[in-house]
Design a protein around this nucleic acid. Structure first.
Length: 201
DNA sequence: AGCACGATTAACT
DNA sequence: GTTAATCGTGCTC
């Protein structure tokens, strides 16, 4: 995986791969947000893949619209959307430009800036073990939609920090899909780190 | 212009 | 286990 590492940040080549491969290999890597000179970070512990217009759980099922435009952009772009009118969700665009797919970040294990993240999460016991919890903790909202995770100056990026080879990866059906029809409902496109407690399930 | 519905969370019983 | 909160989006009229 060293092939994808620049100095510290993951390069665009990392995201320009099949979405399931990107999702798996994001586990264990460090998500970093710079905030007024301070680093907020955590290891990615749970992700989900959303792949193309045929995936009826993917927003791109509606085709190219104002909202999904980012998904059709170059790999490494940040896709942020509002869910339930309340929660911001953080995704990274994958595969080739023109093909709409992304990985949703569902949980991180907090590492740096925990005091600030805890403050933003009020008194909650759980700082970042959920897709909307981690955006709240990191301070990510729609202003990041369309931004480039791989830009050298980006204040949001991922540091090369792969899982140890012995670590086991769990797969599961994606969460919260509701009435999404089969076979998409049962696709095991949720990935998490075996035995890591910082997860949504 | 109006409507139903979320890739969720926290606060209930 | 159940439910309210809350609003952008895409679809229908």
């Amino acid at each position: 995986m060293l092939q994808f590492a620049q100095v510290t940040r993951l390069s665009r080549a990392f995201f320009a791969r099949p979405t399931l491969a990107v999702a798996r290999s994001l586990l264990g890597q460090r998500l970093v947000k710079r905030h007024q000179g301070q680093r907020l970070s955590g290891l990615i512990t749970e992700v989900e893949a959303y792949i193309g217009e045929t995936d009826l759980a993917c927003h791109a099922r509606a085709g190219r619209t104002p909202r999904t435009d980012v998904l059709y952009g170059q790999p490494g772009l940040i896709y942020v959307y509002l869910n339930y009118g309340i929660h911001w969700m953080l995704n990274f665009v994958t595969e080739t430009e023109g093909f709409p797919a992304a990985v949703l970040i569902r949980a991180i294990q907090p590492q740096e800036g925990i005091a600030l993240m805890q403050q933003r999460r009020s008194s909650s016991k759980h700082i970042a073990n959920g897709p909307a919890k981690l955006t709240q903790a990191l301070g990510v909202d729609n202003r990041w939609n369309g931004a480039d995770l791989c830009a050298p100056t980006s204040d949001l990026f991922i540091e090369h920090c792969p899982l140890p080879p012995a670590a086991r990866i769990l797969t599961a059906p994606r969460i919260g899909l509701g009435l999404t029809p089969e076979p998409w409902l049962s696709k095991r496109w949720n990935f998490s780190i075996h035995l890591n407690p910082y997860q949504t399930h």
